[in-house]
Nucleic acid binder design. Sequence first.
DNA 1: GTGAAAGCGCTAACAA
DNA 2: TTGTTAGCGCTTTCAC
Lengths: 343, 343
Amino acid sequence: MKRRNPSQRRTRKGSGAVTLHDVAKLAGVAPITASRALNTPEQVSAEALKKVSDAVARTGYVRNRLAGGLASARSRLVAAVVPTISGPVFLRTVQALTEALAERGYQLMLGQSGYDNSREDALIEAIVGRRPDGIVLTGIMHTPEGRRRLLAAAIPVVETWDLTPTPFDMLVGFSHVDAGRAVADFLLGRGRRQLALVAGDDERARRRAHAFQAAARAAGMRDVPAVYVPAPTTLNHGRSALAELLRTSPGTDAVFCSSDLLALGIMTEAQARGIAVPGQIAVVGFGDLEYAADLHPALTTVRIDGTAIGRQAAQFIVDRAEGRRVDKRVVDVGFSIVERDSA
Amino acid sequence: MKRRNPSQRRTRKGSGAVTLHDVAKLAGVAPITASRALNTPEQVSAEALKKVSDAVARTGYVRNRLAGGLASARSRLVAAVVPTISGPVFLRTVQALTEALAERGYQLMLGQSGYDNSREDALIEAIVGRRPDGIVLTGIMHTPEGRRRLLAAAIPVVETWDLTPTPFDMLVGFSHVDAGRAVADFLLGRGRRQLALVAGDDERARRRAHAFQAAARAAGMRDVPAVYVPAPTTLNHGRSALAELLRTSPGTDAVFCSSDLLALGIMTEAQARGIAVPGQIAVVGFGDLEYAADLHPALTTVRIDGTAIGRQAAQFIVDRAEGRRVDKRVVDVGFSIVERDSA
DNA sequence: GTGAAAGCGCTAACAA
DNA sequence: TTGTTAGCGCTTTCAC
């Protein structure tokens, strides 16, 4: 880095910000010592540490993590991909993830794939270009092209909100099949005999729906009517779904909804029509969103611990990034049916 | 970059990934030409372009944007700070922002500040370290330390969801004072005489609340009871707030809520108690969340175009990042009262 | 515990 | 239009 005569030197502007070199110079140490003072203070003498922190305070230095990431091949960036952020389902997971990562000095990048997987590939490319230390997917990785890219990039991946026998890498989720079956058993156990379901048209909801139907049939029901609505689900979808159900299967005495919002829609429509819940129709939701307990009647629903999912995902990624061995790569957080008044 | 004798050469592992150098070598051009082929294809001959894209395809190259960002001082990263992602209010803004940025090759980093501003400083430091091309704040910048840091970092800032006479940099929002007043006028115009309000305990909601009270008083009301609940607001807060209101101000005939969720809570409690909405009590929400129109009764509420806010914020940041002049730095997206059945 | 040297992978600046 | 050179700001490697 020997500089030539200024007159013939090539100049580059730089960002103008305070650099670690500036700090080191002010502290009277070598840049690397300043670096160590910030990253591994235990490797530095108390004296040097003090000089450096003083210099940092005096200059208002903020370390450039782009440069650090480039040099160390650790960006401390983690990407999360959700179908859409406006469905409230993944919110708690994203929130827990953001917090757990922030505590450990990592930052979350958010990507939305849409429910149709079409943007997934472009998104993966955008993400991989940022060299994140990990990627958290909601759902499992679908497209072969996406799988290939992730594999090639060798970035730790956590799939969430699902369970598959063939995880891509790490996995935090629960069994949608078990959940669907459990709800059917629950309703049958409460004496309901004409089960129906309303589900968003996405893969996981469909899997719960099929298990629900299979369990009901196994218990002797001939027909389990299903209404599918586009994902993400809305309250209005629930309202019109109940209307449809009432028309086509008037004997229905229990409805399993693929989201709490859908369940609220069912209950709203029931209320508008003077149909008693749970008297005439039992309603079960999915998700146990924060408001479920406070509806009238309080909503019986399937509780998924989205916060635990987010925290475990963060743990997985950080463990990998810091070189710890991750033995158990699959965590089943399970689910529970929260019995309230609507069923 | 002359290499010494291999035996005494220092080696560094590198990430092992395909680099632009590899691509350039395979394409038979200089690295910078490959770089230009990817970034500014119009500056490159068709022939070179083709050679490069072939090489990219053959190698599965994904550009390293950390390195690019470091070299060009443009990270193509944008940070968004929300109080918490699990309040549904900012969701549409964050969604629109994410999409609008992704379309233009920028990625969103998400940060949660909490409602108490205590984490804001630490968050700003974490964000600035990533050298984003812009920062989108929901609400306005509060702490002096935060302001100083942002100022020092010279990163474009967009404040959203609020209007202030002294914007930090750029601003997309609306007047909370006008909104509060408008709702009071609306209710008074509908013949309501005993206005009350329920509001989350955050600054913006409080500003709306005060304007609402002032307008009601200006119209002759002596007392405008207010119930404040902790932010973020929940359905249950709404239920207990109505209970409180009924106890302390039994004559209340209209309630302005600081969120649609609160309004749903009010309506739920009213329903549970057999109180007619809007017959006995009119309810007005805030936000016009997606489900507001489908409630029973359909919720009258203040509509804020969160999507427009997000898109405009993205536009501001990208314009700045790409060196375009931004003349109008403040955009008022306004609000509207959506008249439905609840008031 | 501290430091010098050498890059990480890319692009700005200059030159041809 | 293409290429050469010199960094961007940091951390790794190796040496003391």
